[in-house]
Amino acid sequence: MFKRIFVEKEMRDHPRVLQFLSSFPNIPTQEIEEIDKIFNRVKKPYLQKRDNLQAFLGRKRGSLVKPAPDAYGLSGSPHYYFIHSYNCLYECQYCYLQGYFDSPDLVFFLNHEEIGEKIKEVCDSHPDQEEVWFHAGEFSDSLALSHLTGELPYYFSLFQTLPKARLELRTKSANIKELKALSPQKNITVSFSLSTAAQVKAFDLKTPPLKTRLKAMRELQNLGHPIGIHIDPVIYEDDFEKKFAELFQEMKTQLDLSAVHYVSLGVVRFTKDVYHQVQKNYPDSPLHGADWVKSFDQKVRYSRPLRNWMLGKIKALGLAAGFNEKQIYLCMEEMEN
């Protein structure tokens, strides 16, 4: 998986570092002073993640918990995200990480206790709120490598002591081994990103197929773990309604829809830089066959009527499948339309 693992000197004897390294006894490791002195200091080509992927283990410094952008997640509550990892093993052709970091290498911050202290502090700063949301997986996949990084038991214990805090773990992975060993908690939701089977195959390179994701979701639901769904990014394809009707039918077959915490919908969008990266990294992607426009916020999107039409159709299909109005929300910029 990794060509080389870099470890910050300060963290070399940390139990989580030792646990991580024990999974890679034959991979060269190298001690470094600080991740920031190496990672992102030079522009490393994104597609080197295929054959020259490196991992960095260290301590997150600076801002550990950050306010989420407006209209992020269910409305009405404060939302924050915390960062314990940068980058992802998967290769989703539309992924904004292509243009966000200047290296595809994976960074794991293993000082979870410090992050946890900050989460407590933020939670306490909202005495009047019924719920305060914390999202993991803004810059990485929350489950894909959780068996190596081993942080889930810590966050489960932490959120048990913070009843009004809500944790969202975002993923496209079916790696639920760690989760299965933990007792479900009402305030921890595992949210899965889904799209039609054909789109998963075409765009979500190296991710588990739709059926495998749904099977993992069912297993978690059967164990009592709250789950959420992100249908984001929505991409237009021929027979759009038919394909998405099939997706909802699959969900209906596999899941108890009434117990799904929420379904968020968002249409594919790119910043200009990310779009250029997509062109460079995936020149043959069907994404380039679409008619894109520069939208109200300068992002590259489908035309306004098309994206509204897609959202409207998907929402109607979701309601017809058995979700209710309260479960479905439109995510991010779509709300500004």
């Binding site: 200091r41 522009k43 490393k44 020259n52």
Partner: peptide, 21 residues
């Protein structure tokens, strides 16, 4: 394959098998 510069952010992609700084 890739050419980096010491204390330089920009890199260059060539065709090859090993990276160089």
């Amino acid at each position: 394959r890739t050419v980096y510069g010491e204390e330089e952010f920009h890199s260059f992609e060539l065709i090859g098998d090993l990276d160089l700084i």
